[in-house]
């Protein structure tokens, strides 16, 4: 199994390190040709405007959409914004997943926080997941077959899945807990 991580800007090395610890072959994706022979793709946290602009400049938008039509894709934070169909403002988006997302919905950096989350579909006895939210986006709505899989105590939706696509508004790559990465590898393997 070979997993690519979009490496235009952001925390891509953190994802690659966890994947390698799990014994998975990895590749940094900067150009369309880098998508060849990958089984799944992670779009990391970073600045969604920067990532979007570079993806447009280097003709990655259509190849990424074609890749996502067949394969598993997971977006964390900026990646979640990039995968959404609707974010209410104009910036380059892949627009593959039926979700409405609000950028920086919890506020600025002074409002960044950590929270323990229970994930839908994981065993009831599983420990809560230590989620790190940094200038994080929020899911305003899931549509069609997209389903929320994690919710904060105040009702905010912060993770969702739609078939082989997953989004989290927090950063599993910043924690030592690799359960989300293993969960994604399960989706890739299906």
């Amino acid at each position: 199994m070979k997993i690519g991580v979009l490496a235009l800007q952001g925390a891509f090395i953190e994802h690659i390190k966890i994947l390698r610890q799990l014994g998975v072959e990895t590749a940094e994706v900067r150009l369309p040709a880098d998508l060849a022979d990958l089984d799944g793709l992670i779009i990391p946290g970073g600045e969604s405007t920067t990532i979007g602009k570079l993806a447009v400049m280097y003709n990655l938008m259509e190849p990424l959409r074609q890749f996502a039509a067949e394969k598993a894709v997971w977006g964390t934070c900026a990646g979640m914004i990039f995968m959404a169909k609707d974010i209410g403002v104009d910036q380059p988006l892949l627009g593959i997943m039926d979700i409405v997302v609000e950028r920086n919905a919890f506020g600025r950096q002074v409002d960044s926080f950590e929270a323990d989350l229970r994930i839908e579909g994981w065993p009831a006895e599983a420990k809560p997941f230590p989620a790190v939210f940094i200038r994080a986006p929020k899911l305003i709505e899931t549509k069609e077959t997209a389903q929320p899989i994690a919710t904060l105590a105040d009702g905010s939706l912060v993770a969702a899945q739609q078939g082989k696509w997953m989004v989290t508004s927090f950063h599993p790559e910043l924690t030592l807990d690799d359960r989300f990465h293993r969960y994604f590898l399960d989706i890739v393997g299906r």
């Binding site: 800007q9 891509f12 934070c77 960044s112 926080f113 989350l117 229970r118 940094i134 919710t151 105590a153």
Partner: peptide, 24 residues
């Protein structure tokens, strides 16, 4: 408790923002 914020402004989120700026 599930989903309850347990910290604003901890070192993890401070250093974490810098991690999001990498490669930029």
């Amino acid at each position: 408790e599930n989903g309850t914020a347990r910290g604003i402004g901890g070192f993890k989120v401070k250093a974490g923002l810098a991690q999001m700026l990498k490669g930029g």
